[in-house]
């Protein structure tokens, strides 16, 4: 006991002011680019181009915002992205939890090889299939400019299944399932009333992950979406890049507006995301 106390006392002394300085610098670095988006978005291009440039927010943000809304249908983009993101998140959580439940707690033929198969496909670069996926959407399904091309392939992913399998395997005790089985409960009822309440926090984090991923996804949406009214936020912002002139204030205003909703979401779910990322590290 004496040794332990000594160790603790010793450790307490170890948090030096330099530690806080170090963390402070990295917090500054984490925030600065987002602050800079706002600075450029709220100043005229001349203010930014002069030497030394303005480093504080100006008064032109609303002017830029109006220009943004004139250039692209930004409200549509917000609506589309949120709708697609929520549908994908809900569906991914549901189907991943189902498959994860089966893979964690049921025995059936081919389960082992199926698991190895899922894990090895997670190691393939996702862009490998993107060319063909586009051809399938364009030539065979006629889903170009249709949200189905974004939603359907993302309804459930290998990552989600792996995530839920690990969660259910470690968090749902077999004894409870055995007891429920003796009571003669149907499998889906077991899933809904015993498994689901236990895995809810982890499922929420998976939903958040897939929402964030959908929000920020660029490559595939840029290939399949054509009409401005169907753009997602990222695709709408990309349209602001002029072919000849670069209106930085307008582009940065767009990038800021594309990030702001996530920052607001982050205020509410930041802590849960942090623990989700850290849990994921242990799962992996």
């Amino acid at each position: 006991m004496t040794t332990l106390t000594a160790v603790k006392v010793n450790r307490r002394r170890k948090v030096s002011p330099f530690t806080y300085l170090f963390l402070g610098i990295f917090t500054f670095i984490s925030i600065f680019p987002l602050y800079w988006l706002f600075v450029v978005a709220s100043n005229s291009n001349e203010e930014i181009a002069k030497i030394p440039p303005s480093v504080v927010p100006g008064s032109r943000f609303l002017v830029q915002l109006r220009a943004l809304y004139e250039a692209v249908p930004f409200n549509w983009a917000l609506f589309n992205t949120i709708a697609i993101g929520v549908v994908i998140a809900v569906s991914q959580v549901f189907f991943s939890a189902l498959a994860g439940f089966a893979l964690a707690k049921m025995k059936f033929k081919g389960k082992k090889s199926f698991m190895v198969f899922i894990i090895s496909t997670m190691m393939l670069p996702s862009q490998l299939g993107v060319v063909v996926l586009y051809l399938i959407m364009a030539n065979y399904l006629n889903w170009v400019d249709d949200f189905k091309s974004l939603v359907v392939p993302a309804l459930v992913t290998a990552f989600g299944v792996f995530w839920m399998r690990q969660t259910i395997d470690t968090q749902v005790p077999n004894e409870i399932l055995e007891a429920a089985k003796l009571d003669g409960a149907a499998v889906f009822r077991i899933f809904r009333s015993i498994v689901y309440p236990v895995i809810k926090p982890s499922a929420f984090v998976l939903g958040l992950f897939s929402f964030l991923y959908t929000w920020n996804d660029y490559l595939f949406p840029s290939l399949v979406l054509n009409s401005p009214n169907r753009f997602t936020v990222q695709i709408a912002i990309r349209q602001l890049n002029g072919s000849y002139t670069q209106d930085y204030a307008l582009i940065m205003c767009g990038a800021f507006m594309a990030t702001l909703p996530l920052l607001i979401l982050f205020v509410f779910v930041g802590k849960r995301l942090v623990s989700g990322v850290m849990d994921g590290a242990v799962k992996g």
Binding site: S30, P33, L34, L37, L212, W215, N216, Y218, Q234, I237, R238, A255, F256, A258, T259, L262, L263, F266, L273, V277
Partner: peptide, 8 residues
């Protein structure tokens, strides 16, 4: 930074 899109 991780929640910020690559585009932004």
């Amino acid at each position: 930074p991780w929640i910020t899109s690559v585009l932004a």
